[in-house]
Design a protein around this nucleic acid. Structure first.
Lengths: 229, 229
DNA sequence: CAGCGAATTACACCGGGTGCAAATTTATAT
DNA sequence: ATATAAATTTGCACCCGGTGTAATTCGCTG
């Protein structure tokens, strides 16, 4: 039920990708703000409504790619093995992404990802939309942490710090890749990334790691929450 | 040259406030999304263009109030006395705000601030705009920290954490104030706020305070920055 | 092939925001 | 006081992102 796509859904994926590709080309050539959705629709031989049928906003045509990765930390925290702390599993997740040179880490010379990043860094509304998605991810992670027994303030602090720190590292990787082009030293960057992420998680572990040491995940014994209103 | 406002600027301030007040009333009554800028202009007996002359966006009619406070940390870091660390002066700044029950801390029953917060928390686009301003403040603070000799990653980490942690504390105060109304325990909240902020700064101090201990501020001996591109 | 539901389309519409040039107001110099 | 320059306000037309609706087409299933 997962494998067979059906002609319909297959075509949808195809159209989605086509729209995104065409739009990306146009944005690069003329700038994000100087290309209207109507023009994209015209170029793709599709109605304007259809574009908004695939993407909730114009920005999401660019930013929507790979937004699903942002919800991984929250999921991992919820489904983590017994005996592990949230910080551990998220940390390991990040290490894994970095070591595998996942596109989002900025360690791989993924051409489309480079183009997307370039657009995002250069355009305020794209940057804003990107930030919004990240903020949503923080919210999900904080929720997961609270459900796992963390106190509200601590949860937000952790979620925010984790997401922001890793994001900073990844963006820095992209920045360096732009500069040094295809001949940049991946190994050095990987090491550096691992170090930075380790640093961030160490700060969190040292400062507040003890707050999150639990044995049984998902046992709903949350702290005292004042349900006011 | 600062005291005397001149008839012109005085009237501008007046109009600005009038617009903001009228809009606030309308937003509260009918909801932010259900009031158009044209209607606000009509109610204020002013042209729509004039409204946008005073406020860059519709959201800023609400959020713009007190946005200047957000740039304080960056300024304080830059102008801090010799022998003090950035973390110290920002921490003290926050302590000061809390002890003085500054409106932005959510510890004072400032009616307008309450109304504004309520609107912001209830409306996504207002929340987003608010976040954007906060993000700008982070950027300013990080810049200041870098100029004071901090390494880039550390600077962003500090700036982000400081702004986000304090914001979380303040919003929590507002939340409690909404619940318990005018009879909420200010002293307890003040204590709790101080504790939370202290906690956040302690985490930062313990983890990375040593990275920022310098004697002479503003002596431009910044680290090695690769100017690529 | 018939017919159902999902997707696409055209079209009208709303509201935020801008550019422009004219009109009005305020400050200033004589 | 009056002319002049500078700053605001205004009306207007316009662009663009995004939505609601109703009709139409398309893919699937029996």
């Amino acid at each position: 039920m997962e494998e067979r796509k059906g002609l319909r859904e297959h075509k949808k994926d195809q159209t989605r990708k086509r729209l995104s590709d065409i739009a990306l080309d146009m944005f690069e050539e003329r700038g994000f703000d100087n290309v209207s959705v109507a023009e994209i629709a015209e170029a793709a031989e599709v109605s304007k409504k259809t574009v908004f049928n695939y993407f909730p906003t114009k920005e999401d045509i660019v930013v929507g790619r790979g937004a699903h990765m942002l919800s991984e930390p929250a999921r991992l925290v919820r489904e983590r093995p017994v005996g592990t702390t949230p910080l551990q599993v998220v940390h390991e997740h990040m290490i894994d992404l970095i070591k595998r040179h996942h596109p989002m880490t900025g360690l791989t010379n993924h051409p489309i990802m480079k183009r997307v990043r370039k657009l995002i860094t250069e355009n305020p509304s794209l940057a804003l939309r990107s930030m919004r998605h990240r903020e949503h991810a923080k919210h999900l992670l904080a929720e997961a942490l609270v459900d796992e027994g963390a106190e509200e303030f601590t949860a937000r602090f952790l979620a925010n710090t984790i997401m922001e720190a890793t994001h900073t590292v990844f963006v820095e990787n992209f920045r360096q890749m732009f500069c040094e082009g295809v001949t940049f030293d991946v190994d050095a960057m990987e090491k550096r990334s691992l170090a930075k992420v380790h640093q961030a998680f160490s700060w969190l572990e040292d400062g507040m790691g003890h707050l999150m040491r639990r044995q049984e995940p998902a046992s709903a014994s949350s702290g005292s929450k004042v349900a006011c209103g």
